[in-house]
Amino acid sequence: MQKPYKIPESVLVVIHTPELDVLLIERADKPGYWQSVTGSKDREDEPLAETAVREVFEETGILIADETSGEQQGSNRVSRSRLVDWQLSNVYEIYPVWRHRYAPGVTRNTEHVFGLCVPRGIPVVLAPREHTAYRWLPWREAADQCFSPSNAEAILLLPAHRRC
């Protein structure tokens, strides 16, 4: 049975600390390709914030929850109020290596940018089929490490969008 095609609408979540250190994760299918959390909607009517919450948890183990009681040292929970929609979208050409995941003829994706402020030292648990390593870098260095131009540009906008 063929896997359903990906929806060409996604989120990019720049996870950062109050000090503007940014979490980057390395793709399992492309070693050396560092990025922020990204992911497509699971269904057409999925709200973008829900996509962001789901992808952050799936890729990093960080749980974005409505309650804030779990935001203590060592916890993987952060308040939903820390997830900020930057009201910024990028339309880009899907890399040819990943086009097979989309319906025939789909070549462009619309990516919606979010920021997530997390406490320094929050535990990160990667999905090993998707990512093999992670690192925290100061925002300018993180932007330099991203393979995706839209990801690098989003990180460079972090100081203007930070809400911690």
Rank of each mutant, 00 (worst) to 15 (best):
T110G: 03
G74A: 09
R140L: 13
S148W: 15
D144C: 09
A142Y: 06
E71L: 07
A52G: 02
E130C: 10
D42T: 07
R101M: 12
V106N: 05
P138Q: 13
W98G: 00
E71T: 08
E67V: 09
C146A: 12
D42E: 15
H131A: 14
T110S: 11
G115H: 12
R129M: 11
P104M: 13
E93G: 02
Y92H: 07
D45K: 13
N76M: 08
L88F: 09
E59W: 06
W136T: 04
E55R: 13
D144T: 13
R82F: 09
A133R: 15
F114K: 00
S79Y: 05
E71P: 01
C146M: 11
W86F: 05
W86A: 05
H100S: 10
E71W: 06
N90F: 15
Q73M: 12
V124Q: 05
E58L: 15
W86R: 07
R54A: 13
R99K: 12
L126G: 06
Y134I: 05
P47S: 07
C117A: 15
L48I: 02
W139S: 06
G74C: 07
D85K: 08
A52H: 01
I62R: 01
E59M: 13
L48W: 03
R129Y: 10
S79M: 04
H112K: 02
L126T: 08
T110E: 12
A49F: 11
H112V: 01
V91Y: 06
Q73R: 07
D85Q: 04
S150H: 12
R82T: 09
W98F: 14
T132L: 14
H100D: 07
R140P: 00
R80P: 00
E130P: 00
V106C: 11
N109K: 12
Q145A: 15
Y102T: 01
S69L: 13
E59C: 08
T132F: 14
E46K: 04
A103S: 13
G115E: 10
R54Y: 10
E44Q: 15
E44K: 15
R43I: 12
S150A: 10
L48M: 10
L63F: 11
A143T: 06
K41N: 06
D42H: 09
A52Q: 01
E111Y: 03
L88R: 09
H112W: 05
